[in-house]
Measured scan of single mutants.
Amino acid sequence: KFNKERVIAIGEIMRLPNLNSLQVVAFINSLRDDPSQSANLLAEAKKLNDAQAP
């Protein structure tokens, strides 16, 4: 279950337009470290993406 959620979360994070490459890598590394947190990490990535919108 967590592996599928992690793959989906990674794909979504990679498509967030307002994150820089270091932020994307940090979120992906966090997902690798704890796949059970996929939903929480994706939500945090989306919040950061929205906050950094031009």
Rank of each mutant, 00 (worst) to 15 (best):
residue 47 K to G: 06
residue 2 F to N: 15
residue 24 V to S: 03
residue 38 S to F: 14
residue 3 N to R: 02
residue 38 S to M: 15
residue 43 A to H: 08
residue 21 S to E: 07
residue 29 N to F: 12
residue 50 D to M: 09
residue 40 N to V: 09
residue 44 E to G: 05
residue 29 N to Y: 05
residue 50 D to L: 09
residue 22 L to T: 12
residue 47 K to H: 08
residue 27 F to A: 02
residue 43 A to K: 09
residue 2 F to Y: 06
residue 6 R to Y: 15
residue 17 P to Y: 04
residue 1 K to S: 15
residue 28 I to W: 04
residue 22 L to M: 09
residue 32 R to T: 14
residue 3 N to S: 04
residue 12 E to T: 12
residue 50 D to F: 07
residue 21 S to Y: 13
residue 51 A to I: 08
residue 14 M to E: 06
residue 46 K to W: 05
residue 50 D to Y: 07
residue 19 L to D: 00
residue 32 R to S: 14
residue 34 D to E: 07
residue 22 L to G: 10
residue 48 L to H: 02
residue 37 Q to T: 09
residue 7 V to L: 13
residue 15 R to D: 04
residue 12 E to I: 14
residue 13 I to V: 03
residue 40 N to I: 09
residue 14 M to C: 15
residue 15 R to E: 04
residue 8 I to D: 03
residue 53 A to R: 09
residue 53 A to H: 09
residue 6 R to G: 15
residue 46 K to T: 05
residue 53 A to T: 08
residue 38 S to H: 14
residue 6 R to D: 15
residue 17 P to H: 08
residue 3 N to F: 08
residue 46 K to N: 05
residue 36 S to A: 12
residue 1 K to M: 13
residue 2 F to L: 15
residue 1 K to F: 06
residue 21 S to M: 12
residue 21 S to F: 13
residue 46 K to D: 01
residue 44 E to I: 11
residue 49 N to W: 01
residue 26 A to V: 10
residue 51 A to Q: 07
residue 5 E to G: 06
residue 13 I to S: 01
residue 28 I to P: 01
residue 40 N to T: 10
residue 45 A to H: 00
residue 16 L to Q: 03
residue 49 N to Y: 00
residue 22 L to H: 12
residue 18 N to H: 11
residue 26 A to F: 13
residue 25 V to L: 12
residue 18 N to V: 00
residue 10 I to G: 02
residue 36 S to P: 04
residue 34 D to R: 06
residue 23 Q to N: 02
residue 44 E to V: 12
residue 46 K to A: 04
residue 25 V to M: 12
residue 15 R to L: 13
residue 21 S to P: 11
residue 8 I to Y: 07
residue 36 S to C: 13
residue 39 A to D: 05
residue 33 D to T: 11
residue 30 S to E: 10
residue 20 N to R: 11
residue 49 N to Q: 01
residue 47 K to E: 06
residue 42 L to Q: 02
residue 28 I to F: 05
residue 37 Q to E: 08
residue 48 L to N: 02
residue 35 P to H: 06
residue 27 F to M: 05
residue 20 N to H: 12
residue 44 E to C: 12
residue 49 N to H: 02
residue 14 M to G: 05
residue 17 P to I: 10
residue 54 P to M: 12
residue 22 L to Q: 13
residue 34 D to K: 05
residue 46 K to H: 07
residue 30 S to A: 10
residue 38 S to G: 04
residue 14 M to V: 10
residue 27 F to G: 01
residue 7 V to R: 14
residue 21 S to Q: 08
residue 37 Q to N: 08
residue 7 V to N: 10
residue 9 A to H: 03
residue 53 A to Q: 11
residue 13 I to A: 01
residue 4 K to A: 09
residue 53 A to M: 09
residue 47 K to F: 07
residue 41 L to A: 10
residue 33 D to Q: 05
residue 5 E to W: 05
residue 30 S to Q: 14
residue 39 A to G: 11
residue 30 S to P: 01
residue 3 N to L: 08
residue 48 L to K: 03
residue 17 P to C: 07
residue 35 P to G: 11
residue 43 A to I: 10
residue 43 A to P: 01
residue 25 V to W: 13
residue 12 E to R: 11
residue 30 S to L: 14
residue 49 N to E: 00
residue 28 I to L: 13
residue 9 A to G: 02
residue 1 K to Y: 10
residue 35 P to M: 12
residue 15 R to T: 10
residue 37 Q to W: 06
residue 13 I to D: 00
residue 54 P to Q: 09
residue 7 V to P: 01
residue 48 L to T: 04
residue 29 N to M: 10
residue 42 L to Y: 04
residue 8 I to W: 05
residue 49 N to A: 03
residue 53 A to Y: 07
residue 47 K to L: 08
residue 10 I to L: 10
residue 15 R to V: 07
residue 23 Q to S: 02
residue 43 A to Y: 12
residue 26 A to E: 09
residue 12 E to M: 12
residue 42 L to M: 05
residue 50 D to K: 06
residue 49 N to F: 02
residue 25 V to Q: 10
residue 19 L to E: 00
residue 53 A to F: 08
residue 8 I to C: 13
residue 32 R to N: 15
residue 40 N to H: 14
residue 49 N to S: 07
residue 47 K to W: 10
residue 54 P to E: 09
residue 48 L to S: 02
residue 36 S to L: 08
residue 45 A to N: 00
residue 34 D to A: 07
residue 1 K to D: 15
residue 4 K to C: 15
residue 13 I to L: 07
residue 26 A to T: 08
residue 7 V to A: 14
residue 18 N to T: 01
residue 2 F to A: 15
residue 29 N to I: 14
residue 5 E to H: 06
residue 24 V to Q: 05
residue 4 K to E: 15
residue 20 N to I: 06
residue 20 N to A: 07
residue 3 N to C: 15
residue 27 F to V: 03
residue 40 N to D: 09
residue 32 R to H: 11
residue 13 I to F: 03
residue 10 I to T: 04
residue 28 I to Y: 02
residue 3 N to D: 15
residue 43 A to M: 13
residue 7 V to G: 04
residue 48 L to I: 07
residue 8 I to L: 11
residue 44 E to L: 13
residue 5 E to R: 03
residue 3 N to V: 05
residue 14 M to S: 06
residue 45 A to Y: 04
residue 38 S to C: 13
residue 52 Q to D: 02
residue 39 A to F: 13
residue 32 R to W: 14
residue 27 F to E: 01
residue 26 A to W: 09
residue 25 V to H: 13
residue 19 L to W: 00
residue 25 V to P: 01
residue 22 L to F: 11
residue 23 Q to H: 02
residue 10 I to P: 01
residue 48 L to E: 03
residue 51 A to V: 09
residue 46 K to P: 00
residue 42 L to R: 04
residue 15 R to A: 10
residue 32 R to I: 14
residue 31 L to Y: 03
residue 50 D to C: 11
residue 10 I to Y: 04
residue 21 S to W: 14
residue 46 K to S: 05
residue 21 S to N: 10
residue 2 F to K: 15
residue 17 P to F: 05
residue 33 D to W: 09
residue 19 L to S: 00
residue 46 K to L: 07
residue 30 S to Y: 10
residue 16 L to D: 00
residue 40 N to Q: 11
residue 36 S to N: 05
residue 8 I to E: 08
residue 42 L to E: 02
residue 14 M to N: 04
residue 50 D to S: 07
residue 8 I to N: 04
residue 20 N to L: 10
residue 28 I to V: 04
residue 44 E to W: 07
residue 29 N to L: 14
residue 23 Q to C: 03
residue 35 P to Q: 05
residue 15 R to M: 08
residue 6 R to H: 15
residue 11 G to N: 07
residue 3 N to Y: 08
residue 17 P to V: 06
residue 35 P to L: 06
residue 33 D to Y: 10
residue 50 D to W: 07
residue 34 D to L: 05
residue 26 A to Q: 12
residue 40 N to K: 11
residue 35 P to D: 08
residue 8 I to P: 02
residue 18 N to W: 12
residue 42 L to G: 01
residue 25 V to I: 13
residue 16 L to M: 12
residue 15 R to C: 14
residue 53 A to N: 07
residue 29 N to C: 15
residue 38 S to V: 14
residue 27 F to Q: 00
residue 3 N to I: 11
residue 44 E to Q: 12
residue 25 V to K: 10
residue 36 S to T: 13
residue 2 F to W: 04
residue 26 A to S: 13
residue 37 Q to L: 09
residue 47 K to C: 14
residue 15 R to F: 05
residue 32 R to E: 14
residue 33 D to R: 07
residue 12 E to W: 06
residue 49 N to I: 01
residue 27 F to W: 02
residue 50 D to A: 10
residue 40 N to W: 10
residue 37 Q to M: 09
residue 32 R to M: 14
residue 31 L to V: 09
residue 13 I to R: 00
residue 37 Q to S: 08
residue 54 P to D: 12
residue 14 M to R: 09
residue 41 L to I: 12
residue 9 A to I: 12
residue 40 N to P: 06
residue 20 N to M: 11
residue 5 E to S: 05
residue 18 N to C: 06
residue 47 K to I: 11
residue 19 L to Y: 00
residue 34 D to V: 04
residue 9 A to V: 10
residue 31 L to W: 05
residue 18 N to D: 02
residue 26 A to H: 11
residue 15 R to K: 09
residue 48 L to R: 03
residue 36 S to G: 06
residue 9 A to D: 02
residue 12 E to P: 01
residue 10 I to D: 02
residue 11 G to Q: 08
residue 28 I to S: 03
residue 23 Q to Y: 02
residue 23 Q to G: 01
residue 24 V to M: 06
residue 48 L to V: 08
residue 45 A to I: 02
residue 1 K to R: 13
residue 31 L to P: 00
residue 53 A to E: 07
residue 50 D to N: 08
residue 44 E to S: 06
residue 38 S to D: 04
residue 41 L to M: 10
residue 47 K to D: 06
residue 18 N to Q: 02
residue 29 N to H: 10
residue 9 A to S: 04
residue 14 M to H: 05
residue 41 L to Y: 11
residue 14 M to A: 04
residue 19 L to C: 04
residue 35 P to Y: 06
